[in-house]
Simulated scan of single mutants.
Amino acid sequence: MDFIKRHRVEPGKAAKLKSISTDDTGDVKNKAEAKEITADLTKEIRDLQYRMFVEQKQSLLVVLQAPDAAGKDGLIRKVLGQMNPQGCRTYPFKVPSEIERAHDFLWRIHKCTPAKGMVSIFNRSHYEDVLVVRVEDLVPKSVWSKRYNIINQFESNLAAAGTRILKFYLHISPAEQLERFKKRLDNPDKHWKLNAGDYTARDKWDAYRESYEDAIEKCNSDESPWFVIPADNKWYRDASVAGIVHQTLTDMNPQMPPVDVDLDEIRALYDREIADQQE
């Protein structure tokens, strides 16, 4: 299944989230098949990521945005977190600190972008500054409305430096979100995630949807594409993101660097040491 073709938002086109199904599963028949697909793809992703880490010429940035409970943490744990942590970092962007607020809104973001050979995963991102700040009226429109162009320039610079960018919006329905909130409430191990603000934000669902649609439409390009991932079924969410990441890394085609040592000499030294030990 071509997950990229199915879920990519074409640049220049509006992202009408209300018309996109949150429980679409495409050609994936069931949960068991999805889990098999995910398992196979994550193995290949690990190999491709290792090659990119050794190659040291390219990098990958994965941006995750979603309403609460859409599954960013689960996706990182089950799919993206399967990559070798030596070459992969996850950055959860929370409410800006006092120091962060004293700088421009990209200050805390830029230092987390991936170096060559690395993967950076953003759990929330610079897009919060055209989403939350807009809906919650934290800054005036004259400020946040200018940030779309700034974001486009920022992402274009990353792409020019060899960073591939994948941006995922995990698309969940209000009913499924409420059900997951209930499961959190019933599970003591999940109580740390509970926040009254998550419930009050539901009153602004339409406003948040509109802000996501604008961000996706205004900041979407061939070098920095958006994907809308149906997230009501966790198993399909995982399989589709794994498919897109895998295809992207395959297209990047990282190569192991050429050997710059004399292998015959190394083998001879090894054989000599083994022989000495046996005497």
Rank of each mutant, 00 (worst) to 15 (best):
residue 200 T to S: 14
residue 46 R to E: 12
residue 44 E to D: 13
residue 114 P to K: 09
residue 98 E to S: 12
residue 95 V to P: 12
residue 177 Q to P: 03
residue 147 R to F: 06
residue 18 K to D: 15
residue 191 H to I: 04
residue 208 Y to A: 05
residue 242 A to K: 04
residue 72 K to D: 09
residue 157 N to I: 09
residue 174 P to C: 06
residue 207 A to P: 01
residue 17 L to G: 03
residue 279 E to N: 12
residue 94 K to N: 08
residue 245 V to F: 06
residue 79 V to Q: 03
residue 88 C to A: 15
residue 170 L to V: 11
residue 174 P to V: 02
residue 224 S to H: 12
residue 145 S to T: 10
residue 116 K to R: 15
residue 238 D to R: 06
residue 166 L to M: 13
residue 146 K to T: 14
residue 144 W to Y: 14
residue 79 V to P: 04
residue 119 V to I: 13
residue 171 H to W: 02
residue 164 R to C: 04
residue 251 D to F: 00
residue 204 K to N: 13
residue 3 F to D: 02
residue 6 R to S: 09
residue 161 A to S: 15
residue 133 V to W: 00
residue 182 K to F: 09
residue 217 E to Y: 14
residue 158 L to Q: 07
residue 174 P to A: 06
residue 134 R to I: 01
residue 214 D to V: 02
residue 60 L to N: 03
residue 116 K to P: 01
residue 171 H to T: 05
residue 53 F to E: 07
residue 72 K to C: 09
residue 260 D to K: 13
residue 106 L to I: 08
residue 55 E to T: 01
residue 222 D to M: 08
residue 278 Q to H: 10
residue 207 A to M: 13
residue 194 L to N: 09
residue 269 L to C: 04
residue 227 F to H: 13
residue 225 P to S: 07
residue 244 I to R: 00
residue 36 E to K: 15
residue 142 S to C: 04
residue 205 W to R: 05
residue 54 V to E: 10
residue 143 V to C: 01
residue 4 I to F: 01
residue 186 D to M: 15
residue 25 T to H: 13
residue 75 L to Y: 12
residue 223 E to N: 11
residue 180 R to K: 08
residue 102 A to N: 13
residue 221 S to H: 15
residue 163 T to H: 01
residue 95 V to Y: 00
residue 117 G to E: 06
residue 82 Q to T: 11
residue 6 R to W: 00
residue 163 T to R: 04
residue 185 L to D: 14
residue 233 N to A: 05
residue 55 E to K: 03
residue 11 P to V: 12
residue 89 R to M: 12
residue 117 G to T: 08
residue 75 L to M: 07
residue 210 E to Y: 02
residue 240 S to W: 02
residue 54 V to D: 09
residue 99 I to V: 14
residue 277 Q to H: 08
residue 162 G to K: 05
residue 18 K to A: 13
residue 76 I to E: 06
residue 50 Y to A: 12
residue 102 A to I: 00
residue 48 L to F: 10
residue 92 P to Q: 11
residue 35 K to A: 07
residue 165 I to V: 14
residue 169 Y to N: 06
residue 173 S to Q: 11
residue 56 Q to R: 15
residue 140 P to Y: 06
residue 15 A to G: 07
residue 110 H to P: 02
residue 160 A to S: 14
residue 106 L to A: 02
residue 180 R to H: 11
